[in-house]
Design a protein around this nucleic acid. Structure first.
Lengths: 210, 210, 210, 210
DNA sequence: GATGAATGAGTGTTCATTCAT
DNA sequence: AATGAATGAACACTCATTCAT
C-alpha cells in the first residue's frame, strides 16, 4: 500500500524532471522509468500512455487556473455592466491578478510544463486557450467601454494582441523569475506599463498632439 | 543540368513544408525525400546533415536581419547621443521598424521557421538573441534618457521585458497575419500602445495627475 | 522464465558466429538478430550496444587470462630474484604455459574473437597489451640474468620481439589447431626451439666462433 | 596529359594515406576523392572499383617480391640438392634475406598495406601466401637434410610455424621500424636467434653438452 | 577525362508500447 | 502491483557504385 503510492509518485517526480529538461516530445519514458528505479511495465500500470502521464502532472492545476480566470472575468463583466461606467480603480484587478500569480507560483513547475514544455501533447495549445478566453473577455469589455465613452472600439487584432500580451506576461515570468515576491513586483510594473498603453487608447488621443 | 536546380530546390521546398508542419526535431528526412521524389542519398549530396538542410533555408535571411537590426540600433544611439535630447519624433523609428517588417515579410516562411520551428537545431535561441541585442540597446538608451531627464531608470527586468515584447510583436505577427499591409497596420497600433507605456515611464508622472 | 535465458543465449551464440565470420566491424547486428530469430529491440534489451555485446562474449575470459599471466610473471620474478641464479630447469615454466594454454582452450572461440576478430572494438589492442606485459617482464628478467652472468643484455628490440613471438605462439595455435592436446605438443616443440635461441644469447657467444 | 597523370597519382597518394589510416574495409572512397580534390566519378574512370584501387597500389611490388622469394628458394634447393650436404655457411642466406629486406623497405608503405591493412580485400591472405611458399620450401629442405643427416624430420606443425615466424619477422619489422638500417640489424639478431633454434633441432643435441 | 548527380541498401540505435507472468 | 522480455517501426546517416553529360 505504501509501495503503491511510492512507485506512482516516484514516477511522477521522475517524469516532471524529464519533461522539464527535454520537453514532452523529446522526453524518454525509458529514462523516466530508469530514474524512478522502476520498469516500463509499471508505468503502464498507472498511466495509459505518455500523454496520460503528462496530463497527470498538469491537468488538475490547469483546470483550476481556468476556473479562477473564468470567475475573475465573469466578475469583472458583471461589475462593468452593473455600474455602466468605466473603471478607474484598478485595485480589484490587481488583487485578481495577484491571486492568479499566487496560484501559478504554487504550481510553478506544473505550469512551466504546460505552458512551455507541452509541444507534441494535447496541451500544446494551452497558452492559446488562455489567450482566447482573455480575448473573448476583452472583446466584450472594450465593446462595453466603447459604448459608454462613445469612442471607437479597439480592432480585433489589437484585442487579440493585448490578450496575448497579458498571458505572455505570466509565461515570461514563469520562465525568468523563480521567486514569487520578485515576480509580483515585476508584474506590478508591467501592468502599470500596459495600463498606460490601454488608457492611451481610450482617453489619450489628444495626448499625442500636445 | 536542369535536374541540378530541380532536385535541390525540390528538396528545399519539401523540407520547408515538413519543417513548417512538424518543427525541426519532429521532421523526418525520409519524409522530406519521399515528398521531393528523391532518395535519401540525394539529400546528403546537397546537404551535410539535417541541420545544414535547415540552415540552408534560414541562415541567410537571419543574418541579414541581424545586420539590419544592428545598423538601426547603432543609428539610433548615435542620434540620441548627438542631440543629447529625448526624441519626441518617432517618424524615423517607424521607418526603421517598417523596413524590418518588410524584410521579414519578404521571407515570411523562413522567419517562421527560424523563430517558431527551430527547436532542437542550433537556431533555437534566435528569438533570445534578438531580445538580447534589443535589451542591450534599450539599456543604453534608457540610461541615456535618465541622464537627460534626471529621472530614475527602468529596472533590469523592465528593460528585458520591453525588449522581449518588442521582438514578440514581430513573432506574433508572423504567426497570425500573412498580409504585410495588414501586419504594418497592426504594427503601428501596437507600437503606439507600447509608446504610451514607455512615455508613461519617463514623463507621465505629472500626466497622470492632470 | 525459460525464454529469458533462451533469447539472450541465442543472441550470444548468434553474435559469436557472426563476429567469428566477419569480425567486429563487419558484423551486422541485424544479421545477428535475424539468425537468433529475434527483433533488433530485443538485442538492445540485453546489451547496451554493439561493443557491449562483443564484450559480453570476451571480457571475462580476457580478464581472467590477464590475471593468470600476471601471477605467473610475478612468481617467476620472485624466484629469479630469490635464488640469484639463472634457471636451468624449465619445468615450472612449462607448467605455467600449460595452464595458460588450458585456460585459453577452454574458451577457444572467445579468445579467437578477442585476439583476431576484435578490430574496431575497444579490444583491438589486446594482443599488444599481452605483448607489452610480457615485454616488461622479459626486460626485468634479462636485466637480472645479465647482472648474474655478467654478460651483455638483449637490446630493446630483441626483448620486444621475443615477447611478441611468445604471445604470437598462442595466437598462432588458436588459429591453426583446434585440439588442445595437439596444441600442447606443438607448444612444447616451439618452446624447445625458442629455448635454444634464448640460451644461445646468454651462454653460446663462443659457440658461433668455433 | 599532365592532368591525366596528376589526377591518377593524386588519387593513388590519397588512397595510400586513407588505406594506411583506416585499413581497406574502413577506408572511404568518398574521403579518398575529397582529399585528392577530385570527384567520385574520376576515381571510377581510372579504377574499376575499390579493390582495383587498392591493387594498383600493392599488386606490382607484391608480385615482384613473390618472384624474388621464389628465385631465392629455388637457388637454395638447387644448392642443397647439388652438394648433398648440409649448409654451415649462411652468408648466402643472409645476402638473400637482405635483398628481400631492401626491396621491402624500398616499398615500405605498399607492403604495410598489403601485409597489415588489406583485410576485406583479395590481398588479405598475402601473408598466408608467403608463409605457404616458405613452408613448402622448408618442407623440402628439412626432408633433404633429414635424409642427409639420417635424423628424424621436423613435424608439419613445426615446419609451418617456423615458416610463419620467418615471415612474421618481416611483418613485425614493417610495423615497428621505419629505418632500413635499423631493420637490418634487428633482422640479423632475430635470424641468429632462430638459427640457434633451428640448429638445435638438427645438430645441437651434442652441442649443448659440450 | 572528369563532373555532378543520384541510387538504394545498409548501418547502429531509440522509441512508445504490449503482455505473459 | 509490477517485472522482464520483446516488438517493430522509425531515426539520421554512410556506403560503394553508376551514369548522362
Amino acid at each position: 500500500m505504501k509501495n503503491e503510492k511510492d512507485t506512482k509518485s516516484k514516477l511522477l517526480a521522475s517524469a516532471k524532471q524529464e519533461f522539464m529538461e527535454k520537453g514532452y516530445m523529446q522526453a524518454s519514458l525509458r529514462n523516466i522509468c530508469k530514474n524512478a528505479g522502476v520498469t516500463t511495465g509499471a508505468l503502464y500500470f498507472f498511466f495509459k500512455d505518455k500523454e496520460d502521464l503528462f496530463a497527470s502532472l498538469v491537468e488538475e492545476p490547469l483546470n483550476t487556473l481556468k476556473e479562477i480566470m473564468n470567475s475573475h472575468y465573469t466578475e469583472e463583466m458583471e461589475y462593468v455592466t452593473a455600474i455602466h461606467q468605466m473603471k478607474n480603480d484598478f485595485t480589484d484587478d490587481m488583487e485578481a491578478v495577484e491571486e492568479l500569480l499566487h496560484y501559478i507560483y504554487q504550481h510553478y513547475e506544473e505550469f512551466q510544463l504546460v505552458l512551455t514544455k507541452s509541444q507534441g501533447s494535447r496541451f500544446e495549445k494551452s497558452v492559446d486557450f488562455f489567450v482566447a478566453v482573455t480575448e473573448k473577455h476583452y472583446r466584450l469589455l472594450t465593446d462595453k467601454i466603447s459604448e459608454i465613452i462613445k469612442a471607437p472600439v479597439l480592432n480585433d487584432y489589437m484585442v487579440h494582441w493585448i490578450s496575448h500580451m497579458q498571458i505572455d506576461i505570466f509565461v515570461h515570468l514563469l520562465t525568468h523569475e523563480r521567486s514569487e515576491a520578485a515576480a509580483r513586483e515585476h508584474m506590478i510594473l508591467t501592468m502599470n506599463y500596459l495600463m498606460n498603453g490601454w488608457n492611451g487608447f481610450f482617453v489619450v488621443p489628444d495626448n499625442n498632439k500636445e
